[in-house]
Structures are given as structure tokens and as C-alpha cells.
């Protein structure tokens, strides 16, 4: 239902850009007209302000436009590198592989294509790392893998990560980027919403912290499950977040959403999000929040190992 969120590129991004960036940073109405093909891999045009940026500068800036602060979409690995200590990342459950339980038309080919494009087995990354020396369980949707959609493997890896966090008594941070539940696994995908929420309910019962970070875009079954139930809700500036995508709303009830609807800021104004945090500050903000939940708690149980 939310496929439209990740439309096919209307322009061809440059060959020298690593594979994960081939998906355009589609963003709001104004971005649409500004996407242009550029002749040279060294440069990238900002879809929001139109500024032509030196790719290396953009990279150094966490792929945030140096002129207008527009946040380009980034891969799960890039996100991990931006927030975790260099000490290393212990990845979990990377051996889980997708099957095609419904024998759904074209699904196997789609999975093969996504694996080739991203060099990842599935659209999720889970494991354990340190943030400013604080141990934490991390999960990331991979937006470049079938739109970050959630099927059996994504649901299972997130649920296992949360269960391990309970066993290890660690806080959890999940970065969401997703078009929603994955159509090709039918009812099995739908129930991954319930499964991940059930694991998070147990995390909550264990009085362990869950921070949900919503990045562009987060929609559908992911918004209607784990992404929306953080103790603390964070979003990146300008990220589009909602239940139903704007195109589907328009098609279904002929309602045109007002400018700025479903942005991080809109969601904050409507009480859905605590903090809108720029990518450059994300690591420091997360570390601070983790520290808050290590010190001074009345319940011993909140103190992580």
C-alpha cells in the first residue's frame, strides 16, 4: 500500500555514488522538480535547495546538505557508522534468509535484486554496539532493501534483538525507515507487527529503555507497530512519517494533504514525537538519553550492564 513512498528514481543518480544511494532522496513537493541528472560523480544536487554539492563534503557531513540541512537518505550501515563507537558492532542473526512462503509473483526476483543492490541478506540490521561507551542493542531498517518493508525476517530479527536486550538487560534503539508491512509475504508480514510489539511489551515490562528514531520515510505497518511505541520518540528533521502515504490518501478519498503534513515537525506539533534531532547531533543526544537511564533510577533494574 505504501510503495509510492519509495518511488522509482525519476532521475539517474551518478555512477560513482555507492549503490545504496541510487535511490533518490525524494522529499516533499518542492524536491520533486529539482531533481536533475548531473554529469559528474563528484557532485550531487540537493533535492531541496538545488545547491550543487561536492560529494565528499556531503559524505563528511553525514549526507546532510551543507546549505539547507536537507537530510539525504542513508543506508543502515552508514547510520551505524554515524552513531556507534568504533569499538565494533556485533551483528546478530545475519544468517536468517527470506523464503517465498506465498510463492508470490516476482518475489524471489525482487529479493535477489535487493540483495545484489545492497549486498545485504535482508532489509534490517540488528546487533549490539556502544554509543559513547554505553552498551546498547541497535536495529535499523534498510530503506534501500525493498523500501525497508517488513516481512518475516525483518520481524524476526527485530523481535530477537529485543528479546536479547531483555536477557542482557540493555536498552534498545530502533531506527525506522520503511514503507510498511511487506505485501509479498501477506498475512505473515501483517503479524510481524504484532510480534515485534509483543517483544517490546516485554522490554517495557522489564523496565528497559526503548528509543524509537523515525527517519525518512516511515509509514504503514511499521508506523503502526514498533516505530510508534518508544519511551522516547525522535525523528530526523523533515522526515516523512505517517500511517497512510499521501498518494494513497489522495487516491482513496481524494484528499490532498496540506503542505508540510506528515513531516517530523508536523508529527511533533501533533504530539506524536518528543524530539526532532539533526543527524549531526543524533549520537550525542542518544548517548545523553542513555545516560539518563543509567543514573539515579529508583529501580535497580533500569541500570544496564
Amino acid at each position: 500500500m505504501f510503495k509510492d513512498i519509495f518511488r522509482k528514481p525519476k532521475y539517474v543518480t551518478l555512477n560513482s555514488v555507492p549503490a545504496p544511494h541510487r535511490l533518490p532522496a525524494e522529499h516533499g513537493q518542492e524536491g520533486a522538480q529539482l531533481r536533475k541528472e548531473l554529469p559528474d560523480g563528484l557532485w550531487v544536487k540537493c533535492p531541496k535547495c538545488g545547491e550543487v554539492l561536492f560529494n565528499k563534503d556531503l559524505e563528511k557531513n553525514g549526507r546532510v546538505c551543507t546549505t539547507c540541512r536537507y537530510h539525504f537518505r542513508i543506508s543502515a550501515r552508514e547510520r551505524l557508522a554515524l552513531i556507534a563507537d568504533e569499538a565494533g558492532f556485533e551483528e546478530w542473526d545475519a544468517e536468517l534468509r527470506t523464503v517465498d512462503p506465498l510463492e508470490f509473483p516476482g518475489y524471489s526476483e525482487k529479493i535477489d535484486g535487493a540483495q545484489a543492490k545492497t549486498h545485504l541478506p535482508e532489509g534490517v540490521l540488528t546487533g549490539r554496539a556502544l554509543i559513547e561507551g554505553l552498551p546498547v542493542v541497535l536495529a535499523f531498517n534498510e530503506g534501500f532493501f525493498m523500501m525497508g518493508s517488513m516481512g518475516s525476517v525483518v520481524g524476526e530479527r527485530i523481535s530477537r534483538a529485543v528479546e536479547r536486550a531483555i536477557a542482557l538487560r540493555l536498552p534498545v534503539i530502533i531506527f525506522s525507515t520503511s514503507g510498511g508491512a511487506r505485501m509479498q509475504e501477506g498475512i505473515l508480514s501483517l503479524y510481524q507487527m504484532a510480534k515485534t510489539c509483543a517483544a517490546l511489551a516485554r522490554l517495557a515490562e522489564a523496565r528497559l529503555l526503548y528509543i524509537s528514531v523515525l527517519t525518512d520515510p516511515t509509514f504503514g505497518g511499521v508506523t503502526a507497530s514498533y516505530a510508534s511505541v518508544g519511551d522516547i520518540m525522535i525523528a530526523e528533521p523533515g522526515a516523512l512519517i505517517g500511517f497512510t502515504g499521501p498518494r494513497v490518501i489522495k487516491q482513496t478519498i481524494r484528499q490532498e494533504l496540506p503542505r508540510g503534513a506528515q513531516t517530523a515537525e508536523f508529527n511533533q506539533d501533533h504530539g506524536q514525537i518528543d524530539l526532532v534531532v539533526e543527524r549531526s547531533r543524533m549520537r550525542a543526544v542518544l548517548a545523553n538519553l542513555l545516560r539518563y537511564h543509567q543514573e539515579g533510577a529508583i529501580y535497580d533494574s533500569t541500570v544496564g550492564v
Binding site: A194, A224, S225
Partner: peptide
């Protein structure tokens, strides 16, 4: 969307 459809559903699941 304004009133948090996703959150409302997710809370039922929890």
C-alpha cells in the same frame, strides 16, 4: 494522521 493512527493501532497490539 494528525491524531496518530499508527500509534493508536500499535498501542492495541502492545
Amino acid at each position: 494522521e494528525e491524531r496518530g493512527q499508527g500509534e493508536a493501532i500499535a498501542r492495541c497490539l502492545l
